[in-house]
Write a protein that binds this DNA or RNA. Structure first.
Lengths: 245, 245
DNA sequence: GCAAAAGTGTTGGTAATACACCCATGC
DNA sequence: GCATGGGTGTATTACCAACACTTTTGC
């Protein structure tokens, strides 16, 4: 027995994928395309986030996880519910109205927005049934609904959060070099960091574990690899209560 | 013409009020009371957050502001939308079901939860039409629905946020003493802070403005008063990008 | 004059910043 | 052997943490 969907409630997923090679934070978007009935005219041709209605018997978190799995096959990624978007006019520009009419959902739909953190390379886009593609967060295409706003707010939340929580490691491979971490911070925050100071700071953390391994297959001097220990991190931060206003 | 409500969507407001005298962070709760038809039996007698359904033509933020105004008369308080709660079973314990039947709203209602920060003394509870009362966050009464969870998550968010943003001043009067700030931090975070270090730290901030005024009407040595300048604060923090993981 | 809370200084350690060159490797 | 990115050290300054007594006031 299929469960029914809640007409006026959806989840939307901002899927952030970081690409270590291009040093770019990307968002995964799907195509929205609609022709007129006689196919003479393109009515809608832009991109949107993946999302879907919430089922009657489903939690919000599960709905988001389901949508992510449907899109990427992945299930265990870092997930955060970061905001609900529910303005009465959030779906009411001309293209959106056409689309809604076609898809038959409620003009006043509230969406619970999540973002996911993962590595671009973890998603196989070949044969993706939604024709999903990565777009740099700093160079987004035309977006339907209020999805540009949703992505930008998610990005803002991510920037704030990565200053105080070690979520940068969700965006990097399990084994990484110090410079890769630095590049990720620089790219995401749009700042420059002094390499010597950054190395010292990171290497001194007990939860940054040096490995007896180096990169291979790189065309220059291979760098030492490290990993992040969530266990060590969490044990340390029973205490950390530093007021920093 | 009255606008229609959205049956399965509500906002709930965690109204935090800090009491400078008792040094207690409180939440404002209203009574939920229901008798059986013959009045022989009390069916429901506990407390809940204030909340209400969202109207069709209303933003989520406006719904929350409306609910706060209805309850307290206040309109300009610090407000944060912090999470949506939408588990299918969030309103399904026995008392909640009785209540829902009586009030005729949807068992599967998603609520967008906000918290507000203000001073206990700003709210006049005399003649409050909802019979609202303050309860210390650390000593909550029996609560209906999932409202204990909502309050606790709001409190958690507040604790995190007051470490990195100057929202503590939303909870204090415009003119405050250094010790009042310290007391507020200690009470909210449940920590002890060294008074000398704390004073030095705070007084050195350019956005903590010393006033040519002292307390009066206190029964011991009156303390110097300060105020917080949001303008100065915001001008400073164009830059502050310190990674602190 | 006394109870209560306000207010005050120093030291040692830790962490942030600023800054420029050598090194190891693959090709 | 050379181009590329990896890796290194020091001095200065700023902030944090620990710690106990004196001062001012209202009563």
């Amino acid at each position: 027995m299929e469960s029914k969907i809640i007409q006026n409630l959806s989840v939307d997923c901002v899927v952030f994928g970081y690409d270590t090679n291009t040093k770019s934070l990307n968002a995964l978007l799907i195509k929205r395309y609609l022709e007129s009935e006689d196919k003479s005219e393109i009515l809608v041709d832009d991109h949107v986030l993946t999302g879907y209605h919430v089922y009657q018997d489903e939690t919000l978190d599960n709905a988001a996880t389901r949508v992510l799995k449907e899109l990427t096959g992945l299930t265990q990624q870092y997930k955060k519910q970061f905001k609900a978007f529910g303005d009465p006019d959030r779906l009411t520009n001309a293209k959106d109205l056409l689309w809604i009419e076609n898809e038959k959902f409620d003009k006043r739909t509230v969406t619970i927005a999540y973002y996911f953190l993962l590595k671009t390379e973890d998603v196989d886009l070949k044969n993706n049934k939604y024709d999903a593609k990565w777009f740099p967060v700093k160079d987004l295409p035309e977006l339907g609904f209020d999805h540009k706003q949703i992505i930008n707010e998610a990005y803002g939340d991510l920037k704030t959060k990565c200053l105080v929580e070690p979520i940068i490691f969700e965006l990097l491979p399990d084994k990484f070099t110090i410079n890769e971490v630095q590049d990720a911070y620089q790219s995401i925050l749009g700042i420059e960091i002094d390499n010597r100071n950054f190395r010292r700071k990171l290497i001194n953390k007990k939860y940054i574990i040096p490995l007896d391994e180096k990169q291979f297959g790189v065309s220059k001097k291979p760098a030492k690899l490290y990993m992040f220990s969530k266990d060590v991190y969490e044990k340390m931060f029973q205490k950390n209560y530093l007021i920093n206003i």
